[in-house]
Amino acid sequence: MNLIAFYVFALLIVASAITVITNRNPVASAVALAFNLVAIAAVFMLLDAQFIGLLQVIVYAGAIMVLILFVIMLLNLREEARAHPAGTFQRVLGPLATLVFAIVLGRAVYASAPSSFPEAAAGFGTAGSVGKELFTTFYYPFEAISLLLIVSMVGAVLLAKKKLS
């Protein structure tokens, strides 16, 4: 059951990822990316990491992608024209390099895959357990990231502010 669900979502992830880069329309690409993020969230949920999965949807698909879409629409970008038509060199070497990379990656994943997967502990991946880890084990990295976010937020406000003359 889980395996079937995984294959369905994995297929969705790959298909939407390909759409993101092949579609010439920026809005369609953004929507495909949003689909991709939701499908990845579903895979997180299948792996018992429900908190990460839900946050992925809320933060990335629900907030960041909407903002990106908002900007694309404001700029009113239309179909993107091909700047340079791909030459023979690119057409031959591009797929070849991709193929080699895929083989290397596939072999690495296959070689490092464990033969059996342990069951997740009770309460694994819930908001409570993730929160506990964040505020104990990963306390300093967590605070550093919070600081970084505040700095970037203040910077954004400062840049966007009208000059007080």
């Binding site: 949003a34 839900l54 949807v57 809320i58 629900g62 909407v66």
Partner: peptide, 9 residues
């Protein structure tokens, strides 16, 4: 969180 994720979409 599920409810907010869904309404956010």
């Amino acid at each position: 969180l599920w409810a907010f994720a869904a309404t956010g979409l």
